[in-house]
Nucleic acid binder design. Structure first.
Lengths: 196, 196
DNA sequence: ACCACGGCTAGAACGCGTTACATTCCTGGG
DNA sequence: CCCAGGAATGTAACGCGTTCTAGCCGTGGT
């Protein structure tokens, strides 16, 4: 079943699934996308190759699922230590730059999961949606409570798109990590400076 | 050589290269990315499999090169019939929507080339850059001549990123084509309504 | 305690991008 | 006109994601 959220998994099954994700994370952080080879993941997770495909519909789905976990971690961290800055734009940029910095710390792994996220595998679609939702929530922490929700949604959505493009550009080597941050910065200010 | 722009190609070589691209376009428009199989491209272009790799470093590079040609066509069309609209935002949106509509007419092919464009193949990087440059020029047609160039570059760049994300979202089935247009619309207005 | 059933395993097999190799063709310089 | 050398051909082979098969194991219902 490609969609684990719909099923009741036994304790050992949850553990197996987690072992698989962890194996993928390890291999990915060591050698990037290409180094995450399904046979190696299986070996390292002490699982049969076919078993992986019972939990994930593809290699990309597996890596995308890992990114979902990562995003949730980020949300936790940002919630713990809320964004700093005088203006909305500053706070939004603060949040997005924190996300970028976290990825910078594991460049190979980040490249791997971002690559996976732009696959058209159906299993990935749900992960993509999930990541988008969490990113929206995270950015929401940078807005004042009385900000017009519809407007906030539009801005947040646009910044999600810019963020995603920037990441893809970075992992594919089109731009350096610094430009990535600058582009986010620029876009956020273009959209937000006109408001408080 | 993966970079045909640097070399002097004989007449028959140019023709061969073009046959390969055309074969890829045909297969792509019939069945999308997966249907563009290198062996089939070779057969249809009356070329040996290995020959394709003399001109393109990968399947993705081949498809990306096709997109570059497509983008140049778009530029020609937009130059012929300049963007319409009262405000800058309207004109920019007009241009971007025209691009989107053109893709809508060949959904399978568009999905194929956009997929290729987000590959991390080194040969693709140059195509990506080229597409970006052309898109910037096209958008430039929507700005008045006296608009601040630095500001225009920032806005154009951000819209490129939004455009790219939207396309990826569309070809991967995350959003419908209508939302794609709306997202561009929204972002363009967010950034441009504050100016003329 | 037993049986049936569904998940798990090991491993083979398939598809397609990519590469390698031997051979033939074409072209431009002597 | 001829020859050297790069380009093109046809085909086999490789790598890795994915799928398939056959058999084993463990668990939950009777």
């Amino acid at each position: 079943m490609a969609d684990p959220t719909a099923e009741q998994l036994s304790k050992s099954q949850v553990a197996r699934r987690q072992r698989v994700i962890e194996a993928a994370l390890q291999l990915g952080s060591e050698g990037g996308y290409d180094a995450v080879q399904m046979r190696d993941v299986a070996t390292r997770a002490n699982v049969a190759l076919g078993t992986i495909y019972r939990y994930f519909s593809s290699k990309d789905h597996l890596l995308a699922a890992a990114l979902v976990e990562w995003t949730r971690d980020l949300e936790r961290r940002v919630t713990m230590r809320p964004p700093r800055g005088d203006t909305i734009a500053d706070r939004v940029v603060d949040v997005l730059r924190r996300a970028t910095r976290a990825m910078e710390r594991e460049p190979k792994l980040s490249a791997a999961v971002v690559t996976a996220l732009s696959s058209n595998d159906p299993g990935v679609t749900e992960c993509q949606r999930e990541v988008g939702i969490v990113m929206d929530r995270i950015q929401g922490l940078a807005f004042p409570a009385d900000f017009d929700p519809a407007l906030q949604a539009r801005i947040t959505r646009a910044l999600d798109l810019v963020w995603f493009s920037s990441l893809v550009g970075w992992v594919n080597g089109w731009v350096g990590i610094a430009e990535t941050g600058d582009e986010l910065d620029s876009a956020a200010h273009l959209m937000l400076d006109q408001f408080g």
